[in-house]
Nucleic acid binder design. Structure first.
Length: 575
RNA sequence: UGGGAUGUAGCCAAGUGGUAAGGCAACGGGUUUUGGCUCCGUCAUUCGAAGGUUCGAACCCUUCCAUCCCAGCCA
């Protein structure tokens, strides 16, 4: 294919290259105010802090675009920080996938790849400091007892009998916890705050728990691990973060975030919460995604139906489209669910401008051009993009036997159907006008072959007599066609909100049984030269991406998204 | 029932006392060798509800209603 657009571009473009459409959101407004007041000396430093216990998904994309985007817009920096404080759930496989996904989306953390586990020693020192201040104590209560003592949402909690141990005793006990003298669950370190606080988070939250477990980075160095609330604020502080952006469910935790930092008297970033992303027809919870993978409802984390970044990448969704999506959905504090159609729009918008057009027939019917010479093959030169000549052109063979799409022929055409039917004339794209003379049926009454004639004067697709033809259909020359496996994807879930399941059912009952259809189609020869990951439009069908399952003799394509189909809508309405 | 957060169109979302941006979806039309793209047009007398303040309220006050989050030694 002669073209300036080699589509395996996998180009790493940066977040923030596309500027947001409308005015700024409340977070950017907040940062502007802080800059104006000189609060952080005009500095902007954010962080994207995933826990390496699963793959990144669309929801993370919003956070990545926000954090890296804001940093770039304000000439600041954004750290990639692994929030790895729970050794029993985290794995190296996940940190690797996260790195790859963030980079793919365009996040650049330069040399600032951080790990909460890098701060364990510092965090420990701060904990001893809290103990010295009488602000933390070692509790011998069991997990169950702690829960009981915590009270309820409407009732204050009770103080632990171990709450008033001396500083010396706490220090000794905490050191022995670190030394491994106690079993898992035997003791914890708690902050001494207020068991009667209306905010349950403040009722003497656990700071450290004992876990005799191998950590993916620190190995067996530690057997006590800090909790999220304690770790996150201090990590932000240590890294000099200015604005700690997180989702709404952490609003309650902000009080504790502030308490730890204030009590220790250390550098204090500002936590700001925004609404997490929900999208129709999909689930964006790590727990549910991991379940889909573990129970084999999908082929893996990168199954093209998954809303994971790796799944969407494999499906052919370009990172630019994801970024545009994140720009368009806006940012606010109200719970919201964005329609999947919004994502599709962004995907089509980018693909339309950046993708060459070629022809493929996914459900072939053979067409024999009766008045076309046997054994003759001619070739057509066709542009690869109707509006952008920089995509170049390719040559396409034409011969007496072709394939066209089954859906482009009707024995009994409905009104307004302007494709092929007995006696009707259509244009074969960039080739000739053909007229259907006869439909050959097999024993089962199914159309198996079309006998047609062509008008030699219509070469190129125009007739010299000015005769108009309403339909233009795509085709592939049979002898030169390349067979291919094509995977047609639909929504993974059949309902708008998969989380809403009736009594006794789960989100799994909402899975769409037709989310994957595998067909065997015929490709025009030029399609044989694509590289894995390359994106292309199959004319009139949609955008496709060559899958890594392809072999030399067996190409495999994933359908990224269909084209808008006004006819399908019309036909459905007429029925 | 305690605390916190949030309600602007089918879905997102601007608007912050001067008379409801924009996008997606939908619908109608032009154009078209992709029923694609593109272009033009339509789409909130009303901002969760009810009162109040004001010359004037989506914006301020009061009450009410609805939804979401919090009782992990998860993050």
């Amino acid at each position: 294919m002669s073209s300036e657009h080699t589509l395996t571009e996998q180009t790493i473009t940066a977040i923030g290259d596309t500027t947001p459409k409308s005015g700024q959101d409340f977070i950017r407004a907040h940062i502007l105010e802080d800059n104006a007041s000189g609060r952080f000396g005009g500095r902007v430093h954010t962080r994207f802090p995933p826990e390496p216990n699963g793959y990144l998904h669309l929801g993370h994309a919003k956070s990545i675009c926000l954090n890296f985007g804001v940093a770039r817009e304000f000439n600041g920096q954004c750290n990639l920080r692994f929030d790895d404080t729970n050794p029993t759930k985290e794995e190296t496989e996940y940190v690797e996938s996260i790195r790859e996904d963030v980079r793919w989306l365009g996040g650049d953390w330069e040399d600032r790849e951080c790990y909460a586990s890098n701060y364990f020693e510092q965090l420990y020192a701060y904990a001893e400091q809290l103990i010295q201040m009488g602000k933390a104590y070692v509790d011998d209560l069991s997990a169950d007892q702690i829960r009981e003592y915590r009270g309820t949402l409407t009732q204050a909690g009770r103080e632990s009998p171990w709450r008033n141990r001396s500083v010396e005793e706490n220090l000794d006990l905490f050191r022995r916890m670190r030394a491994g003298e106690f079993a898992d669950g035997e003791k914890v370190l708690r902050a001494k705050i207020d068991m009667a606080s209306p905010n349950v988070v403040m009722r003497d939250p656990t700071l450290y728990r004992i876990r005799h477990a191998e950590h993916h980075r620190t190995g067996a160095t530690w057997c006590i691990y800090p909790m999220y609330d304690y770790t996150h604020c201090l990590s932000d502080s240590i890294e000099g973060i200015t604005h700690s952006l997180c989702t709404l469910e952490f609003v309650n935790n902000r009080e504790l975030y502030d308490w730890v930092l204030n009590t220790l008297g250390v550098y204090h970033p500002q936590q700001i919460e925004f609404a997490r992303l929900n999208v129709t027809y999909t689930v964006l919870s790590k727990r549910k995604l991991i379940q889909l993978v573990r129970e084999g409802h999908v082929s893996g984390w990168d199954d093209p139906r998954m809303p994971t970044l790796s799944g969407m990448r494999r499906r052919g969704i370009p990172p630019e489209a994801l970024r545009e999506f994140c720009n368009r959905i806006g940012l606010a504090r109200a719970d919201s669910t964005v329609e999947y159609a919004m994502l599709e729009f962004c995907v089509r918008e980018w693909l339309n401008d950046h993708t060459p057009r070629l022809m493929a027939v996914l459900d072939p019917i053979k067409v024999v051009i009766e008045n076309y010479p046997e054994d003759h093959v001619e070739s057509f030169t066709m542009p690869c993009h109707p509006e952008d000549s920089s995509f170049g052109s390719r040559t396409v063979p034409f011969s007496r036997e072709l394939y066209i799409e089954r859906d482009d022929f009707r024995l009994d055409p409905p009104k307004k159907y302007h494709r092929l039917s007995p006696g009707a004339e259509v244009r074969l794209r960039y080739a000739y006008f053909i007229t259907c003379r006869e439909a050959v049926l097999d024993a089962a009454g199914r159309v198996c072959e079309l006998r047609c004639t062509y008008d030699p004067a219509s070469r190129g697709g125009q007739s010299p007599d000015g005769r108009k033809v309403k339909g233009t259909i795509h085709w592939v020359s049979a002898a030169q066609a390349i067979p291919a496996e094509v995977r047609l994807y639909d929504q993974l879930f059949a309902v708008e909100n998969p989380n809403e399941a009736p009594e006794g059912k789960t989100f799994l009952d909402n899975l769409n049984p037709h989310s994957l259809t595998v067909v065997h189609g015929m490709l025009e020869p030029a399609l044989g030269n694509l590289k894995t990951g390359e994106r292309v439009q199959f004319e009139r069908l949609g955008y496709f991406c060559k899958d890594r399952d392809s072999t030399e003799t067996h190409p495999v394509f994933n359908r990224t998204v269909t084209l808008r189909d006004t006819w399908a809508k019309l036909e459905k309405k007429e029925v």
